[in-house]
Amino acid sequence: MSWITRVRNALPFVAPRQTPDNLWHKCKGCGQMVFTKELEENQYVCPMCDHHERIGPKERFAYLFDEGSCETLPSPTVPEDPLKFRDSKRYADRLRAARASTGDSDAWINALGTIDGHKAVVGVQNFGFMGGSMGQAVGEAFIAGVEKAIEQNCPFIVFTASGGARMQEGILSLMQMPRTTVAIEMLHDAGLPYIVVLTDPTSGGVMAAYAMLGDVQIAEPKATLAFTGRRVIESTIREKLPDDFQTSEYYRDHGLIDMVTHRKELRSTLAELIDFLCAGNKQAA
């Protein structure tokens, strides 16, 4: 037995330290490691490069609504797997996995609450649920949010984040585009504002529908906003596109959206917009 072995065996046993797997987060913008706690306290915005990480409905509502005012609204029930679709997995299995990982019934959640004292219904699309894809459940939830806003006589604010229509529901998914458009017209007929906040990423059929129909169009910084992919466009027009093409800043500079707003300023910005747009509506203020 060597002296190293004797010394090692004589030392008291110390259990290895257990480090949580989620203690650090690697920023997708700058690649730096950030304390997860620090990231949470900074509303999931990187303190080094200001990159806005993707967040779900729970975090959105917490950052947006006045404390204690948020009431999550029930999600409408729709037929599941109407086409009995199967690719590499069954659609029903994909739904179960998405629900287990997010805790949500589908990719759209509505809530009623107050923003700096102003009542509003807020709908949030969760990219973590099958890429925020738009199916029947998303369409029904969107319409339910509009109906609730009309009932409460307050604005409807939506946060979009989607890869587009849900292929597993085929034409039933595409039908949600005109249905949500009609719902927005119902909101306008009631004289209530429809405000859209575009977040990373918003694309496809969602971008071609309710995402670009807001009375006011806001976007988070450097969000990817597109109807179709960059490579498809370049191969079609046979030209090289600008580096910032399909970003929030590009859309703002070309007049397609109204403003690019930092996540920390969204709450105050939305409160000011509600105050201005609902100036003649005391119940919404």
Rank of each mutant, 00 (worst) to 15 (best):
R90C: 02
Y91G: 05
Y91L: 08
Y91E: 13
D93G: 00
R94M: 06
R94W: 03
A97H: 06
A97M: 04
A98N: 00
A98M: 03
R99P: 06
A100R: 13
A100H: 12
A100C: 06
A100K: 14
S101F: 07
S101W: 04
T102F: 08
T102V: 01
G103W: 10
D104P: 02
D104C: 12
D104S: 09
S105E: 08
D106F: 11
D106K: 11
A107K: 09
A107N: 09
N110V: 05
N110H: 09
N110E: 07
L112Y: 15
G113C: 10
G113S: 10
G113F: 08
T114D: 04
T114G: 01
T114I: 02
T114P: 00
D116T: 02
D116C: 10
G117H: 05
H118Y: 06
H118A: 06
H118S: 02
H118V: 02
K119L: 12
K119N: 03
A120T: 04
V121A: 04
V121Y: 03
V121T: 10
V121R: 07
V124P: 00
V124D: 00
V124C: 13
Q125P: 00
N126D: 15
N126W: 07
N126E: 09
N126K: 07
F127H: 09
G128A: 11
G128F: 10
M130W: 14
M130K: 01
M130S: 08
